[in-house]
Every structure is written in structure tokens, then in C-alpha cells.
Computed example of a mutant assay.
Amino acid sequence: MHRMTDQPARWTEATVYPDMWADPDTDPRNSNGPSPDGELATLHDCLTNYRMTLRMKCEGLDAEQLARRSVPPSTMSLLGLIRHLAETERDWRDWISDGDPQPKLYGKRDADFDGAVAEQAVVDAAYADLEREQAATDAALAEHPDLGARVGKDGIAIRELIVHRIDEYARHCGHADLLRECIDGRVGQ
């Protein structure tokens, strides 16, 4: 016996590999040129691709879809992930600094997810926050081109900080795959 559900059917825009988000020849994350030279350039390329992946997972969705929660009791949503990563970028700058931590963007713990409501103004602000915080963290890290340099109160290595950023985006891109598939059936890649 089959039960009717409101779950969307799986789909993709890819034509070559139907289990992928996009065909390899049209995927903006694939470059036709040589791979980056050196460790720092490779790390930046990887981070850029994960940032792009997150944006791709959110493309074409309205405020309600972006704010749609996963499964109870989780408060996770695509909009919440955007807000969380903006908050996290700000936190990473605190690791570089010897000064006092910056104020939280969204307030108390988990406010990044709790405040991810289906309003276009909240969506627009979240994207603006993410772009601003990414640029500020990128600029702060650019002042430390030596990956072995230790910075901040805890003496964290720049390499560790960049790898941690990649790890955070990669983990949340996995969440975004599942969230997007639940919203409209679009498969991840």
C-alpha cells in the first residue's frame, strides 16, 4: 500500500549525471584552468567553492522556503545556515584578534537559527551580513600570509583557522543538500 505524502520528488537540472546538482561543464565551481599553485591558493580555492555551493543551494527559493525548518526539534534552515555562517565568520576574526570579542550579530546563542524567519527583509539582511563578514574575515587573514603564523590570544595558526573555515562550510553544505532536497526535491552535489 502506498501512502500519499507531501514530500517533493527528487529532481536535478543536470543532464549528464542525474544525481548531480549541475553538469560538470556548466558547474561554476569547475574551472577549466590549472589548479591553484601553493597551499594558500589551494585553501582559498576550496573555501571559495564551498561558499559558492552554499549560495547555489539557496538559489531560486523564496523567503518561506529559505526559512523552512528541517525536522523537529531542529531549528536548522537554509536561512539559518546563512545567518550562522555570518556569525561564525565574525567569531573567527575574534580568534585572530588580541582584543575583546565583537558583539554577536544576532544576539544570544542559537539566535542565528531562531531568528531565521520567513521575511524578505531578514533574507536580504542575512545575505548582506554574510558578504560583509566574509569580506572582513578575508581581509583580516590577508594580513597574515604565513600559514604557520600564530595569532590571537590563543596563538592559533593561520593554517588551522583557514582549514577550520573550510570544514565549517563543508559540513553546512552537507546540511544544505538535505534541506534543499526536502524543500523542492533538488538533489545535492
Rank of each mutant, 00 (worst) to 15 (best):
P101Y: 04
M56C: 11
I82Q: 00
D100I: 03
R90T: 08
K57S: 11
Y106M: 06
L105A: 04
W92T: 09
I96K: 06
L66G: 12
H84D: 02
R69E: 01
L47C: 07
A86R: 01
E64P: 06
E87C: 03
L40A: 14
L54F: 02
S77K: 01
P73S: 12
M52E: 14
T88R: 05
L66M: 13
P73Q: 09
L105G: 04
T42M: 15
R51K: 13
P103Q: 03
A67W: 04
D94H: 07
D98S: 14
P103Y: 00
S77V: 03
S97Q: 09
E64M: 09
E87G: 10
D45I: 07
D45C: 10
E87F: 01
Q65Y: 00
L79C: 05
I96M: 13
A86Y: 00
W92D: 09
D45W: 12
Q65N: 03
S74D: 08
R55W: 09
R51S: 06
S74T: 07
D62Y: 04
M52Q: 13
K57E: 12
L105P: 04
P72T: 09
D91W: 13
W92V: 10
S97L: 12
L61K: 03
D98I: 07
I82G: 02
P101Q: 07
L61T: 04
W95Q: 14
D91S: 14
W95A: 14
A67T: 08
D100W: 04
C58K: 03
T88W: 02
E87S: 08
T53A: 14
V71H: 10
D98P: 08
E89V: 00
D94A: 12
L43Y: 01
D37M: 13
L54Q: 05
D62A: 09
S70H: 03
A63N: 06
M76F: 00
W92C: 11
G60D: 07
A63E: 11
D94L: 08
L66Q: 07
R55S: 11
H44S: 15
T75H: 05
S77I: 01
P101V: 09
E87M: 08
T42C: 13
P101M: 06
A63S: 10
S74W: 03
L78E: 03
I96L: 15
E39W: 02
R55M: 09
T53G: 10
H44A: 15
A63R: 08
R68C: 06
A63G: 05
R51T: 05
G80K: 00
C58R: 03
L78N: 05
T42K: 13
L78M: 04
D94E: 13
D100G: 12
Q65H: 02
L78Y: 00
K104S: 14
Y106G: 02
M76S: 01
R51H: 08
D100E: 15
D62S: 11
M56I: 12
L85S: 01
D98C: 07
S70G: 08
R83T: 00
E87V: 02
Q65P: 06
E39H: 05
T48Q: 15
R90K: 13
L81Q: 01
T75N: 03
P101T: 09
P72H: 08
R51Q: 15
E59F: 01
V71D: 13
E59C: 06
R55D: 11
E64Q: 15
C58M: 06
L43M: 10
Q102P: 12
H44F: 06
H44Q: 15
S74E: 04
Y106F: 10
R51N: 11
L66R: 06
D45A: 14
